[in-house]
């Protein structure tokens, strides 16, 4: 293959990464923005979503699309439920203290990982894609499913944006984010908003995972790299800014795709992580965000 088509392929792969990454990072960013909680267990919600997707899809017979659609609905609901319980049992009791919650979510990370290892096992297992249509481009054929992933992600991002900026629920969330005490004084049930946001954040990660399992397999350690990448995205994009998150996901996903094709993936990770740490040191509000309150 010549350089041009090769670059197009790398960009397409990067866009698929970006699509999934944007959803996952959006969940992390919402939780941080509204609750000021850094959820280190976010990668494990992603992993849980993928593992459940495998369990649900293999429980359904018939055409693969039936199992996949069932997984797309049920898996995020279960993950959201787990997050809800975790919030009620642990985070709420810590009064959402930023440092204590980080320690607690690290604990949650290990517990979820070990639970998955116990009940799912150390194997990596695939989920069949709902359809196998291949789009033929002039230079190579490309998986139609991967393009559908990009589309689905765009739809979900638009839906989130709509809910946040155009509905009453979004207004309540923004009010809580802006000043939770005043919001409470105006009768907003801040505690319930927090629980809801934590569950929705986890569900976004689970949806991203269900979308990705037909491409890469479900494994109990699969949450690690995406967690680091979503941290990077959220930091570059500015903590708690939706537009910044999407732009940063595009930037990181596509450049990760292109760099990994042409250079050593380890070097790419080293450079990305180092650059992000430097951004956090010298521009804590992110490249696109406004100064933190």
């Amino acid at each position: 293959m010549a350089f041009g088509p090769h670059l197009i392929l790398a960009t397409l792969e990067g866009l698929v990464t970006s699509a999934v990454l944007a959803l996952m990072a959006l969940g992390l960013s919402l939780v941080f923005g509204v609750m000021r909680v850094v959820n280190v267990a976010h990668g494990e919600f992603y992993m849980l979503g993928a593992v459940l997707a495998w369990a649900i899809a293999s429980a359904f017979g018939g055409h693969p699309s039936i199992g996949f659609l069932a997984a797309l609905v049920i898996s995020p609901l279960i993950v959201g439920g787990v997050a809800l319980v975790a919030d009620r049992l642990v985070l709420k009791r810590l009064d959402y203290n930023p440092e204590a919650t980080i320690v607690a979510t690290i604990g949650l990370l290990y517990i979820l990982q070990q639970v998955a290892l116990t009940f799912y096992g150390p194997e990596a297992r695939p989920v069949q894609a709902p359809f196998t249509y291949r789009v033929s481009l002039p230079w190579f054929g490309y998986s139609g499913y991967k393009l559908a992933v990009i589309g689905a992600s765009i739809l979900l991002l638009l839906a989130t944006w709509f809910v946040l900026s155009r509905t009453r629920i979004g207004m309540i969330m923004r009010a809580t984010q802006y000043d939770s005490e005043t919001a409470q004084a105006f009768g907003i049930p801040v505690g319930r908003v927090y629980t809801g946001v934590f569950a929705v954040g986890a569900m976004l990660a689970a949806v991203a995972a269900v979308l990705i399992v037909p491409i890469s397999q479900a494994h109990y350690l699969m949450g690690r790299d995406p967690l680091l990448l979503s941290f990077i995205v959220v930091i570059i994009g500015g903590l708690g800014s939706l537009r910044g998150t999407v732009v940063a996901a595009l930037l990181i996903g596509v450049s990760d795709g292109i760099i990994s094709v042409f250079f050593s993936p380890t070097l790419a990770k080293i450079i990305a992580t180092f650059v992000v740490a430097m951004v956090l040191v010298f521009r804590p509000q992110g490249l696109f965000g406004t100064a933190a309150r």
């Binding site: 642990v90 009791r93 810590l94 204590a100 320690v103 607690a104 690290i106 604990g107 949650l108 990370l109 290990y110 517990i111 990982q113 070990q114 639970v115 290892l117 116990t118 096992g121 150390p122």
Partner: peptide, 19 residues
């Protein structure tokens, strides 16, 4: 038959301690 390693204990200990 449970594959729980010491990391599960570490996780539980972290949460219990901080709570």
């Amino acid at each position: 038959g449970w594959n729980i390693s010491h990391l599960g204990i570490v996780g539980a200990a972290l949460i219990i301690l901080v709570l």
